[in-house]
């Protein structure tokens, strides 16, 4: 697989390590009344869609960027890749 790194262009997937569902960006508010339940969901529960999936890849053998890659799990088509930092900060390209 090739991942279109937003800064470095097409890179081989072997340079990356995979983490999983990009919902890991949304760490719950630890102050919230329901923090216990929210963290349980955050740590253990994932959707497993057949189709478009947003997921986290780490450019381990590269520039150490965390990317949010949008991939179709049924075809492996990659629909986009963004810096996770930009996603978290709400910066759009």
């Amino acid at each position: 697989m090739l991942i279109p790194h937003p800064l470095l262009g097409l890179r081989d997937a072997q340079e990356f390590t995979y983490l999983g569902d990009a919902t890991l960006l949304n760490r719950p508010d630890p102050q919230s009344e329901t923090a216990d339940a929210a963290f349980h969901d955050y740590v253990y529960l994932r959707d497993n869609p057949a189709g478009v999936h947003r997921e986290l890849w780490f450019h381990d053998a590269g520039d150490r960027s965390w990317l949010v890659v949008t991939r179709d799990t049924t075809t492996h088509e990659i629909l986009g890749a963004e810096l996770a930092r930009d996603v978290k900060l709400g910066i759009t390209a």
């Binding site: 390590t17 983490l19 890991l24 960006l25 760490r27 986290l56 780490f58 381990d60 150490r64 960027s65 965390w66 810096l83 996770a84 930092r85 978290k88 900060l89």
Partner: peptide, 14 residues
Amino acid sequence: FQRMEFARQCLWPE
């Protein structure tokens, strides 16, 4: 190191 980068970029980039 990877997890600290995760925390830095994905959890608290501010």
